[in-house]
């Protein structure tokens, strides 16, 4: 289908009005929408809504006990932001592995969430950091918003729970508790411009060698970014020992459900899960 209507609203209100009618493609940075529509993988719908001029979707602010990141925040802006660097260093770090500078300058955090790639670079740390997404809609003439945890928002490759008429307006991440350690790993032979074969995010509170509030997120090993709940259960409340670390690494190896594709086989992805979770935990243990 070819595009019949193009809108570039300046206010959220207008955008939601257009989206209410349905059959619309939402455009922000364009870095996913353009190649996916060009290749025919996800054709453009009848209406193209360019949300990039909506000021309400920009900015990174500390509110109460969480940081609210506007959906239009580019990866470059996110990486340079002091709040992000202070509270969520692994999110900033994931940006450093994200595509290339040209794409980081255009691609948005909201877009990375809505593209829902199983290998989405920023999704792994955000899931480990208990991020929630804020969605807005205008069902009955007034703007309504609600939030949903990132983990349940992401359903499968390219699939989210965003309902028709809804727009993802922000990502909110709670300010980490004291003593939280964070780690991020993206497998690749080069710093960036690489689609993950696996990615791992870890957040946990470390008190006298004991881990609690353990959050592990895995990328590219399941249809959507997944929480490593079985590995978390192995670690939660326990003192890190070489035996426990090996047990956790094995749990990570066993609980992922990777596929084999041109980038890696399922066997290799599981091996990497084991080896990297192990290295990560040794690093946490030693520092």
């Amino acid at each position: 289908m070819t595009v019949e209507h193009y809108y570039a609203p300046k206010h959220l209100d207008e955008a939601l009005e257009v989206l209410r009618a349905g059959n619309a493609t939402i455009l922000a940075g364009g870095t996913d929408v353009m190649p996916q529509s060009e290749s025919g993988k996800t054709p453009l719908r009848k209406t193209l809504v360019n949300i990039r001029r909506i000021a309400e979707l920009t900015g990174i602010r500390l509110a109460k006990n969480e940081v609210r990141i506007g959906a239009l925040t580019t990866i470059s802006e996110m990486m340079a932001n002091d709040l992000i660097r202070k509270h969520f260093p692994i999110l900033a770090e994931s940006g450093d592995h994200f595509a290339s500078e040209q794409i980081r300058n255009a691609g948005t955090l909201g877009g990375n969430v809505c593209n829902a790639s199983p290998a989405g670079d920023t999704l792994v740390p955000m899931l480990a950091l208990d991020a929630v997404v804020e969605l807005a809609a205008k069902p009955n003439g007034s703007v309504e918003t609600h939030t949903t945890p990132l983990g349940s928002f992401l359903v499968g490759p390219g699939k989210t729970r965003r309902a028709q008429g809804e727009l993802l307006v922000a990502i909110r991440i709670p300010v980490p508790p004291a003593g939280q350690v964070q780690r991020f790993f993206k497998f690749g032979t080069r710093p960036a411009l690489d689609i993950s074969a696996i990615a791992i995010g870890l957040a946990a509170v470390k008190t006298k060698g004991v881990l609690s509030h353990v959050r592990l997120a895995y990328g590219a090993v399941a249809p959507a970014i997944m929480r490593g709940s079985k590995t978390e259960a192995v670690l939660e409340g326990k003192r890190l020992t070489p035996e426990l670390i090996e047990q956790a690494a094995q749990a990570a190896h066993d609980e992922v459900k990777p596929i084999s594709d041109v980038r890696a086989s399922d066997w290799y992805r599981r091996e990497l899960m084991h080896n990297i979770v192990k290295r990560m935990l040794i690093d946490v243990h030693e520092h």
């Binding site: 364009g30 040209q102 794409i103």
Partner: peptide
Amino acid sequence: GEGECGACTILVDGMSVNSCLLFAVD
């Protein structure tokens, strides 16, 4: 045409981007 090679790099408002991934209307 997929943002993987950078041959189409331009500056938009002073930031470098891949022009192949940028919609002209934007």
